[in-house]
Write a protein that binds this DNA or RNA. Structure first.
Lengths: 206, 206
DNA sequence: GTCGTTTGCCAACAACCGTTGGCAACGGTA
DNA sequence: TACCGTTGCCAACGGTTGTTGGCAAACGAC
């Protein structure tokens, strides 16, 4: 299964006093950067190792040596932290605004999330990672501010549905009214939705 | 470009008095059904013509003859009509409920939409069709009920972001709190969001 | 300088893909 | 009957993919 990835330090003795640099680290980083770009632009299947290697100006076989397989490369490239701010103590009515603005900022500045989203449609591993990101990171953050502990997972799921829908229509599908909108305007429209999902009255089927 | 698809009637004379049946129609339908299933389950790239042909129990070359190319097959399989009901005249406060319920019903009963959604992440043609479906069908329906003509496209885009986000988290990512939820409960939670996007006060950035 | 490790490239493999052309069987028409 | 368009399968093509093994250069430790 695991292809004996070269991921350990030289035996016996360190190369330098500062432990964390090898000559190949620049190559590793270049591969990772090119991989994120390609996965974000093309999705998992269409992003080929050959194209990624060409972008990083190295041989395709280097990708295999450093990351073991295409799946391994993707796993490394799709490491993602939502970097959610602390939500407790945010004044009533400001939580939605804070969250929507944070998501938009986070996505504009880091294409990893778009790569993960594009890949998750066809790659089972990417979908699972997406589930983990939202269940773990968003899930626990929401649990700390939800008025009802039992309802927290559903509230988090609803927030995820709106935020991922926003990301899908804006960055992947590029639906014009959403893709061209000013971020501040999107925040103004969507914030009340998120606020209600987080702290509003539990909805009951009629 | 077009591969001379065999899509016309026998020359000179009809085979039968009823014009619309050929012996191959059953095969065509079987291909289309298998294609929708595969595209929905695997996305555009991973759904191979060979696999679709195997599901339909015919030779892969038949797919080419009847649909010209893989792109042509997808175009035929991803024909989709939202079948939106008439929205004008719906009493205030009931529009969101009606729409959310309609979308959920439409998606549970027809996997075409999921196929389109999965494929749209990596296939440019699928993304364009998705844009068209929501701009044309949802766009015009929303324009008839929006209080401000100029704001209608944005309102439609926001509704699309929430509805597609729901489809993504429920049917593609299968995020547990959304995928396992009772449809009625989802309607209760999401309907007010859609109602506000459709007819609420225009949001202004602060 | 010498030796072992690291870094990189090249060439190739096996598998799979969409696509094509040809050929046999069938089924109505005359 | 002979004929001709339709339906279907088979075998193969050219291209691309992930992946592998070997070899040459660069490098650091001694």
């Amino acid at each position: 299964m695991d292809a004996e990835v070269n991921e350990r330090w030289p035996t016996v003795v360190d190369m330098t006093a500062t432990p964390a640099t090898r000559r190949s680290d620049a190559t590793r980083a270049a591969i990772l950067r090119a991989a994120r770009e390609r996965f974000a632009a093309d999705g998992y299947d269409r992003a080929t190792i050959r194209a990624i290697a060409a972008d990083a100006r190295i041989d395709p076989s280097m990708v295999m040596r450093y990351y073991g397989s295409k799946e391994g490369l993707f796993a490394a490239a799709a490491e993602f932290d939502l970097r959610l701010p602390e939500l407790t103590g945010v004044p009533a009515g400001r939580l939605g605004e804070l969250l929507v603005r944070h998501f938009l900022d986070r996505w504009e500045g880091d294409e990893t999330m778009v790569a993960l989203l594009r890949a998750a449609s066809t790659n089972a591993g990417a979908a699972e990672r997406m589930r983990d990101v939202f269940a773990d990171q968003l899930g626990v953050a929401v649990a700390r501010v939800a008025p009802d502990p039992a309802g927290a997972p559903r509230r988090a799921g609803l927030v995820a549905s709106q935020m991922l829908g926003l990301a899908l229509t804006r960055y992947v599908l590029r639906l014009p009214p959403v893709a061209d909108a000013d971020p501040a305007e999107l925040v103004a429209w969507v914030a009340p939705t998120v606020e209600r999902y987080l702290r509003g009255e539990p909805a009951t089927p009629r």
